[in-house]
């Protein structure tokens, strides 16, 4: 191409463009966000189904811990690598929101196919909490119990931190509150669970991380 007018060295320009245009994914084929199923979605289920699903969350104390089904992520296809862009990557396909997501704890966006690492970490943490709860005898099957009517019912018995049973991972705590999932909205159920978990974990300095996938 003749360059009588602009006098610009096309090669130099190309090199500069490469420096200011980082590789970005195609906008149309951007990976979908991976949704972490925290609690069953009451809206999409009948009350009974919802309750049963909630109860599935509770495993018997003696049962071996399965892989954390409760915190299962989306089906595997959402973690599959997305098809590669046929065209050169869109220069500005990345939205400002994506930047915010990039600033999560692990520096890995959840919508990124490579987000398996943070997800597995989250799963591990949740599994550890669950295991601790099981060992302390506070995670019990409540399928035979009558459905609770209010979140408060789940929190009626405070933990006696002075009890020697707390130190014994085998003996169930006599005053350990049983978490019974209340009926109500997702937020109400999540709040009830968080309050229960805080109560249970407080004595050994544990922390509760409440996550909402909304």
């Amino acid at each position: 191409m003749a360059m009588q007018v602009s006098w610009i060295d096309a090669d130099r320009l190309k090199a500069l463009v490469a420096q200011i245009m980082p590789q970005e994914p195609c906008e149309d084929e951007a990976p979908q966000a991976v949704e972490i199923e925290t609690v069953p979605d009451a809206v999409s289920m009948s009350a009974i189904e919802s309750w049963n699903a909630a109860m599935d969350w509770m495993e018997p104390v003696t049962a071996p811990l399965p892989a954390a089904e409760v915190m299962e992520t989306e089906p595997a296809e959402s973690l599959q690598p997305q098809p590669e862009c046929e065209e050169p990557p869109k220069f500005l396909a990345e939205s400002p929101e994506d930047n915010l997501e990039n600033e999560d704890d692990h520096g890995m966006p959840l919508h990124n196919p490579a987000a398996a690492l943070p997800l597995s970490r989250i799963r591990d943490k949740l599994r550890a909490i669950r295991q601790r709860a099981t060992e302390a005898g506070i995670l019990t099957r409540v399928s035979d119990a009558a459905p609770p009517s209010a979140p408060e019912a789940a929190m009626q018995a405070p933990i006696d931190v002075s009890s020697p049973a707390v130190a014994d991972p085998v003996t169930p705590l006599p005053h350990t509150p049983i978490f019974e999932i209340p009926l109500g909205s997702r937020d109400e159920r999540l709040a009830a669970f968080a309050a229960w978990a805080r109560q249970v974990l407080h004595e050994d300095g544990g922390h509760v991380l409440v996550m909402s996938d909304e």
């Binding site: 602009s6 060295d9 500069l16 200011i20 220069f91 500005l92």
Partner: peptide
């Protein structure tokens, strides 16, 4: 138009210095 390479060079420097600004 002849100032375009200079401009892009400056923006490349900004990026190298850690600025997150992108060319719309």
């Amino acid at each position: 138009i002849r100032s375009v390479p200079h401009l892009l060079e400056t923006l490349a420097r900004f990026r190298a210095e850690g600025a997150g600004v992108r060319v719309a």
